[in-house]
């Protein structure tokens, strides 16, 4: 399993991307951000991210569809859904389509970091 270092944040809120990536960098993660699904998929195809943190609302496509696309090109890449949308059905849909976790905003940074680490530990390809 790859050492966890690179995190891709996908969200349409500029503020969120900025503060969260700054804080994650302070915890010695490498962070890249994407405001659209298309950019996210390009990053994933490049093989750079070790974990993706994905919002459910995106401007070009809905986050669920984006999850499907990411999983299509990288089935073993852990994706943590992070959203303000508290819905049982959406969360189940996300997990069924390969999300490692479905978390709700607002979230403490410590908790988010743990979710990322656990997702990486649990979802990685078999060694």
């Amino acid at each position: 399993m790859k050492q966890l270092r690179n995190i891709l944040l996908v969200d349409d809120e500029e503020d969120f991307l900025e503060t969260t990536s700054r804080r994650l960098r302070r915890r010695s993660f490498e962070v890249r951000t994407a405001a659209r699904c298309a950019e996210a998929v390009t990053e994933v195809l490049s093989g750079w991210p070790h974990v993706v943190v994905l919002d459910v609302m995106l401007p070009d496509t809905d986050g669920m569809e984006c999850l499907r696309r990411i999983k299509e090109v990288a089935p073993h890449l852990p994706v943590v859904m992070l959203t303000g949308h508290a819905s049982l059905q959406a969360s189940v849909w996300g997990l069924e389509h390969g999300a490692s976790d479905y978390c709700l905003k607002p979230i403490e940074l410590d908790e988010l970091v743990e979710k990322i680490i656990i997702a990486h530990k649990e979802t990685g390809a078999p060694s």
Binding site: A86, L88, S91, L95, E96, D101, Y102, L104
Partner: peptide, 20 residues
């Protein structure tokens, strides 16, 4: 409702993970 929905969504996620 934000509390109710939030906790029940988190619960659903964890039960799903157990099954998985």
């Amino acid at each position: 409702m934000a509390f109710v929905r939030g906790d029940l969504t988190a619960l659903t996620v964890n039960v799903y993970k157990m099954m998985h």
